[in-house]
Simulated assay, not measured.
Amino acid sequence: MILDRFRLTGKVAVVTGSGRGIGAATALALAEAGADVVLSARTREQLDEVAARIADAGRKAHVVPADLTGPAAAGMLADAAVETFGRLDVVVNNVGGTFPRPLADTSTEFLEEAFRFNVGTAHALTRAAVPALLEAGGGAIVNVSSVMGRVSGRGFLAYGTAKGALAQYTRLAAADLAPKIRVNAVAVGSVATSALQVVVDNPALRERMEAATPLRRIGDPEDIAAAILYLTSPAGSYVTGKVLQVDGGQQAPNLELGLPDLT
């Protein structure tokens, strides 16, 4: 059965930023496909809620509350997977993000922090996970990038540059780690998470965003989780070094920030 190729029975995954939104949806999707999951984010209460849902799905979850803005904490998650479950097969580098800011207000330090949070953290966990993935016979890594890594819009210089770098990091890491470890990315569009809450709760803003999206809707976290499941499961076993665009068809920002011309 073709659906069997989407199974992760007996596998172990680490998902960062898994207390809510895309990370939580992804962790639950991997569990429903048969994996045990190491969950990590700042807030234990959120992680415990996701862990309970994973238990309801018949799988095990290990909760690691941590501030993943620094690479060091992310690197420890691979060891947590091996110590708890005895192996590691899947890594999802989901944690990341940077607030919009005009170029004139984007300091060098702010730009460097965007790289550290979006690229450095992913690299730290990827590098730490490689020995365990090889010990398990190979595995899959998925990085969560963004449509803003390939389109241009005012206010997204730090965020878009970091996410564009993460996409290229994905291609380069895939070359280094082939053939046993596959590395791919998902470039997400506008998804109904807490980061987009101000739009989701404002009918006028939501209508503007949906009208500017070819598929005429905001994405659900499960849309991204399904793509990640494909890339981490045997269904995606012939895919590496690719950035899968799951963005509703966007070719430009679907909600401008309204930043004025410089004078």
Rank of each mutant, 00 (worst) to 15 (best):
T16F: 10
G17Y: 05
G17C: 05
G21K: 05
I22K: 04
I22F: 14
A25D: 00
L30G: 05
D36T: 08
L39P: 07
Q46P: 09
L47D: 10
D48R: 04
E49G: 15
V50Y: 06
I54R: 00
R59T: 00
V64F: 11
P65D: 08
A66P: 11
T69W: 15
A72L: 10
A73D: 06
G75Y: 15
A78F: 03
D79Y: 08
A81P: 03
T84P: 00
R87H: 02
R87V: 01
L88A: 01
V90N: 02
V95K: 03
D105F: 14
E109C: 14
F115R: 08
A124G: 00
L125I: 05
A132I: 04
S146T: 03
G155Q: 02
L157M: 03
L157E: 05
L157N: 08
G160C: 07
G164K: 05
A167L: 05
Y169E: 09
A173S: 11
A174T: 03
P179Q: 02
R182G: 06
A187K: 08
G189H: 12
V198L: 05
V198F: 14
V200H: 04
L215P: 03
G219W: 13
I224V: 13
A226D: 15
A227I: 09
L229N: 06
L231F: 11
T232A: 02
L244V: 04
V246N: 01
G248L: 13
G249H: 09
P253N: 09
L257I: 11
T263G: 14
